[in-house]
Simulated assay, not measured.
Amino acid sequence: MRQLNRSLDPASMARDPYRVMVVDDSAVIRGFLTRWLNMEDDIQVVASANNGVAALRECEKFQPEIIILDIEMPEMDGMTALPKLIAMDPDLQVIMASTLTRRNADVSLRALSIGAADYIAKPESTRVNDEKDAFQHGLTEKVRVLGAARRGRKETVDKPVLRPTSVQPSNLQGLAKLTGAKAPIVLRATGPVLAPQIIAIGSSTGGPQALFQLFEQLKGKTNLPIVITQHMPATFTALLAEHLNKIYDKEVVEAKDGEKIVDGRAYVAPGDWHMTIQREGIDTVIRLNQEPPENFCRPSVDPMLRSLLSVYNNRVLTVILTGMGHDGLSGCQKLAEANAIVIGQDEETSVVWGMPGAVANAGVCNSVVPLLRISATIEGYLLGRPA
């Protein structure tokens, strides 16, 4: 597949609105999405298409940075078009859009595994209501975050990066300015800690892809219980647990209220419910609630981490994977104060370095490592040999 001509000036691109293409077989949906996105000063819909064949043609012509791609379309559907679009432009950010059915959720998860950056569930109605407003807000934020991530990677690809260090010489900030590198991440020294009794994982944009890889590599490395909060709608979280259950060598389930935490099992927070953990007699159980969203999310990572601190104190090993926003930062700060272990995914391997970047830049991480090194890093801490 012929790749696109990248002749656009990077400096001018940084000032220009994010270039979006909308692909959907419904003219009504295309119209709504185009109007909603064009209402934003920093977003411009440069093209639209009604199927995958037209999308390939329009992509080559208009060179969008982000594509909103429907799943079910005539002539060429979204899943068929996706790898062809990415072959044309490997930096392309694709958001899969579909009605929230079990089948479409399953297709969206498979799309993430072959290159899509994110997904969004279409509202059942385009009339003015809370669902439509939430969809519009969520879509524009995803476009902004993915557009910024794309441009950020392109701008820094040739710049040196000062690697994470546990020592911060006084001239590091000046060196970063002098060389054009990013400022270094200062790691928190790992003091004497008791062996972790539970692993907690928080993730958002890019999280499913990261979780698939992490759980593949975690096989045989631990029998600890694992609790996972991934920002997802309800239908998606059930399927995410099923997908992970096929990958991992131990059981992965969507969490249920009152369920006991046991070794050798992983629990995914269900969509639209905060997952917390509490002690009840001699048992440790999961409690679900629909208290207000935190960090605009439900489920949210922070309530999970706070509850783990109250039950396990510092015997928690937390991993913050790729995701937009800063959910998990507050909980990680409290865990770090108790001398619990915090691992962050590095920027280079994150789809969006929002959540892991927040904890890394706050100085609460013991390690900041590429995705493919996280399982080995976890194993090192569990064996008392920090990486």
Rank of each mutant, 00 (worst) to 15 (best):
L139N: 01
N104T: 01
A47R: 08
N171E: 09
D130H: 11
T156A: 05
V161C: 10
Q136M: 08
V145Q: 12
D118S: 08
E58D: 10
R57L: 09
M73Q: 04
V94E: 06
N50S: 14
A116V: 01
D133K: 05
P164C: 08
A97P: 04
I67R: 03
K154E: 12
V167C: 00
R151N: 08
Q136I: 14
T140H: 11
A55N: 07
R103S: 08
N50Y: 15
L109G: 04
N104R: 07
M76K: 03
S113V: 10
G147D: 09
V107W: 00
R144H: 14
R153G: 09
T140A: 15
R110I: 09
A54T: 11
L92V: 01
Q63G: 07
S170E: 11
D70C: 07
I120D: 10
D70H: 11
K61Q: 15
R150A: 06
G147E: 05
P83H: 06
Q168Y: 09
N51C: 14
K154D: 05
T156C: 03
P64M: 02
K159S: 13
D158W: 09
A87R: 07
R150G: 06
S166H: 13
V143R: 08
A116W: 05
A81W: 09
K159N: 14
M96P: 05
D106T: 12
D70I: 01
L146F: 10
A148H: 15
V53F: 14
A55K: 03
L82S: 03
D158Y: 13
R144K: 05
R57G: 04
A47H: 12
D158G: 06
R151I: 02
A149E: 13
G138L: 01
V157G: 00
T101H: 12
L82W: 12
E60F: 05
R110H: 11
S166W: 09
V145K: 06
A55W: 12
A87Y: 01
